[in-house]
Simulated scan of single mutants.
Amino acid sequence: MLGKLFKHEVKATGRTFLPMYGALLILTIFTKMALTIGAPDFFTDDIATGPVAEVILGITFTLYVIVITALCVMTFVVIIQRFYKNLFTDEGYLMFSLPVKTWELILSKLLVGLMWSVVCCLMLVISIFILSFGSFSMMEVVQDINMAYTDFNTQFGMSLNIILFELFLCMLVSAISSILLIYASISIGQLFNQHRVLASFGAYIVITIVLQIIVSIILVAVPLLANLDILFSGIDGIKAAQWFINGTTLINLALCVMFYFCTQYIMEKHLNLE
Rank of each mutant, 00 (worst) to 15 (best):
M138L: 15
I209C: 04
L169G: 11
Q194F: 00
K109H: 15
T75A: 09
S233V: 13
L114T: 01
M33I: 15
L253M: 10
V77I: 11
F129A: 14
L228W: 12
C120I: 01
E268N: 10
V100Y: 01
V206R: 04
F136H: 12
S187C: 12
F129E: 10
T102P: 03
M33N: 04
Q81R: 08
L180V: 09
I205M: 12
F96A: 09
M147N: 14
L211V: 07
G58I: 08
V197A: 12
F244Q: 05
E54G: 03
F83L: 04
I235S: 13
A203D: 06
A175L: 09
E274S: 08
D90L: 03
M158W: 03
T62N: 03
D46N: 04
L25T: 15
P99I: 09
M33C: 05
S216I: 03
E140D: 13
L24E: 00
L172A: 14
N146T: 07
R196S: 01
I245M: 12
C121F: 14
I245N: 08
E140G: 10
S137Q: 09
K101D: 15
G92W: 02
M95H: 04
A221L: 15
H8S: 14
I214Y: 07
G50H: 07
V125D: 13
Q155R: 05
V222Y: 06
F43L: 05
L25C: 10
F168S: 02
K7T: 15
S216V: 02
L231K: 01
A175Y: 01
L87E: 14
I66F: 09
E91I: 07
R15I: 03
F165N: 04
W116L: 00
T16R: 04
F201L: 13
R196P: 03
V125S: 09
I130E: 14
N153C: 14
G134F: 07
F43H: 06
I205R: 03
G237F: 14
G22A: 01
V125Q: 06
I47H: 00
I218Q: 09
I126Q: 05
S132M: 13
Q242K: 06
L124G: 11
V222R: 06
G237S: 14
S216F: 11
S159I: 07
L180I: 09
S216E: 03
